[in-house]
Design a protein around this nucleic acid. Structure first.
Length: 261
DNA sequence: ATGCCTAAGCCCCTTAGA
């Protein structure tokens, strides 16, 4: 089965490109981030026409996550990690959705960006990552075959970015962000793209600004982590890079893993 | 030191992204 993650940056603006990607690459499971739409506006019928069933956790203007499954209904297991946003009186942001599909637990996440650093948004990012780790430790203890994927907003290594200097003050590669990410890996999760591309140089994001795509000024922040049961089934992992270069593209490219059945 | 570019919502500019 193929499990994919795609930060679409607005489902309304991206719908033609998103449907095109689903039809061309036909993932078994597609996890979406930055849906940027309220629940009642989620275009579920558009996906049903393509043979996908879906669950979603929306929010007005920002954030929002969804899980699509080919020919079957994702069975929701958890919605949100139980942490409020960084603004006074703000409720929980729509950043986490977990479901079972074909015997695999899929954890779809849109991790807080954390800029500017330092500040309350960065503190929120680190707190969010701590709660994520606790949730993943629960799943680990239950020995559930699990895939954790999405926009982590963390550049793990220096060779995951086109120029370290350009990003060194950014929340995406602060030592605290990286430490929190590596604590997850130390718990035993396998970073699928890293495992198959240990020398780095694989990007999943290119900024809209300053000709970043044309200059290949990108970095890797969309990740797919595998529990041991899933890591044993890993046959391939990749980035659908050409989808970043199309008209009205997201600033992220889709990432995916292929697991043996 | 800042804008570069894009999306959404609401009012044509602001907020947020990374």
């Amino acid at each position: 089965m193929k499990i994919a993650s795609f930060n679409i940056n607005g489902i309304k603006a991206r719908l033609p490109r998103l449907k095109e990607w689903l039809a061309e690459t036909r993932p078994t499971v597609a996890c979406l981030q930055e849906v940027k739409s309220q629940d009642e506006n989620f275009p579920v019928s558009e996906f049903e026409e393509l043979g996908y069933q879906a669950i979603w956790h929306g929010q007005k203007s920002f954030n929002g996550v969804a899980i699509l499954a080919d020919g079957t209904a994702p069975v929701e297991a958890k919605r949100g990690l139980g942490i409020n946003g960084p603004k006074e009186g703000e409720g929980e942001q729509a950043r986490y959705l977990e479901a079972d599909v074909n015997g695999v637990r899929v954890c779809n996440l849109y991790l807080p960006n954390g800029n500017p650093h330092p500040g309350p948004k960065f503190d929120y990012k680190i707190a969010w990552m701590k709660l994520l780790r606790e949730r993943l430790q629960e799943l680990w203890a239950q020995e559930i075959p699990t895939v954790v994927l999405g926009d982590f907003n963390v550049i793990p290594h220096d060779n995951d970015v086109w120029a370290v200097k350009a990003m060194q003050n950014d929340a995406l590669m602060q030592p605290e962000s990286r430490d929190a990410y590596f604590r997850l890996l130390d718990d035993g999760w396998t970073d699928a793209l890293r495992t198959l591309n240990p020398r780095g140089g694989v990007w999943t994001y290119w900024d809209y600004q300053a000709g970043a795509w044309q200059r290949d000024h990108g970095f890797r922040i969309d990740h797919i982590l595998l529990s041991p049961e899933c890591a044993d089934r890993l046959v391939a992992a990749g980035v659908d890079k050409d989808h970043r270069g199309r008209e009205k593209a997201s600033d992220h490219a889709p990432v995916w893993v292929e697991l043996r059945d």
